[in-house]
């Protein structure tokens, strides 16, 4: 089914290393050491930011890769969580800012995001393919303009500034290294959850619904309910990413959830690959590196051109994104492999 990018190398079944996968362990080591060798800039602007957008991509990968539902509203769902944190927590805009403690605020914001996601799902699940994309694009656009023009709730164009990650256990989670590890922890949790859920009853149901809705109905499944529930779960991931994003930026405004950002999430996911939950994280690293440094290479006006070209090249060479490239490379490098058909 889903292709493991880091397959078990050792034959021993009960060997812990073999079960976790050598690739996973190597990756974990790199991610743990990274903030100690990298500068603060790299730790947050590249590391944490990639992890956050990777999570957004992951929520899309769950819907699109397993469920066949391509959504452009993931940044909108994240934005709803972000706005919830700004409105019910503390902000410096003098609008709302109820100052709820983080341990009420975070679950509340995630729940609101998940419910909003389920609502978007409920509206869009009767459609498929391009129409799902169009409906979710409409939702994203509508939400952007609503947030921009509504001052009572969303404080309009300026949005909310002064949104801070809390100080817990004496650690200021706004500091680069704690924030990186917070993002890493949440991202790993979401990644493992999706990896596990992909083979759970519900995960199989979702993939089967993607393959053949009509047959799923003929097996006794309420297809609409299952899809809406998948949206709810995707909303949890996007909501967590949204909270981290608003803490990362320290602010949220309509610009955070505009159509450009919505498309960015899609590009990240497609560049990374939809076949495995690691894909969106790979995509996020590549795109965010590009966004950060393309300006130095081609100038501020042309960096989108470079990202666009990269997108075209990857999609053209490998429809499965970077994951697909990895698969191709592995087939060529496999020792003793004489097969030329892959």
């Amino acid at each position: 089914m889903t292709t493991e990018p880091f397959p078990d190398q050792a034959p021993a079944r009960n060997d812990l290393i073999a079960r976790i996968g050598a690739g996973h362990l190597a990756l974990a080591a790199v991610l743990l050491v990274f903030p100690f060798v990298a500068s603060d800039f790299f730790t947050t602007q590249i590391g944490a930011y990639s992890l956050i957008f990777g999570m957004l991509g992951l929520s899309l990968m769950w819907l699109a890769g397993y469920g066949g539902m391509v959504s452009l509203a993931q940044i909108t769902i994240a934005g709803i969580a972000g706005y919830t944190v700004a409105i019910f927590g503390e902000n410096s805009a003098d609008v709302h800012g109820f100052g709820w403690p983080w341990w009420v605020l975070v679950p509340f914001a995630v729940l609101i995001a998940a419910l909003a996601s389920a609502l978007v799902g409920w509206v869009s699940v009767r459609t498929s393919g391009i129409y799902t994309i169009m409906i979710t694009l409409a939702v994203a656009t509508a939400m952007f303009y609503f947030a921009q023009q509504n001052y009572t709730l969303f404080n309009g164009f300026p949005g909310f500034a002064g949104v801070k990650a809390p100080v817990v256990f004496g650690i200021d989670w706004r500091d680069p290294m704690p924030f990186y590890f917070l993002s890493l922890g949440v991202a790993i949790l979401c990644y493992l959850a999706v990896l596990y859920a992909s083979k759970s009853t519900f995960g199989l149901t979702l993939q089967a619904t993607r393959d053949n809705q009509r047959r799923m109905r003929a097996l006794g499944y309420d297809v609409t309910m299952h899809k809406v529930f998948a949206w709810f779960l995707a909303g949890i991931i996007a909501g967590l990413a949204g909270i981290l994003l608003v803490w990362f930026n320290g602010r949220i405004s309509p610009g955070t959830i505009n159509v450009g950002a919505a498309i960015n999430v899609l590009i990240i996911t497609v560049i990374g690959g939809l076949r495995h939950p690691i894909g969106p994280f790979l995509g996020a690293v590549v795109v965010i590196l590009m966004q950060t440094f393309a300006i130095d290479i081609v100038g501020a006006e042309r960096f989108n051109t470079l990202i666009g070209l990269l997108f075209l090249v990857i999609v053209f060479v490998s429809p499965d994104g970077i994951l697909g490239l990895w698969e191709k490379a592995k087939a060529h490098l496999a020792p003793g492999s004489l097969r030329s058909d892959i």
Binding site: M1, A197, S200, T201, F202, Q207, A218, H226
Partner: peptide, 27 residues
């Protein structure tokens, strides 16, 4: 009308699970 992305066993398992109460299990 089958599920191309699933294995044979997974398909039949889902068919059995579809009429049981544990359809939404995340386990």
């Amino acid at each position: 009308q089958l599920f191309d992305g699933l294995s044979v066993l997974e398909s039949v398992f889902l068919a059995c699970r579809g009429v049981s109460r544990r359809r939404f299990s995340l386990l």
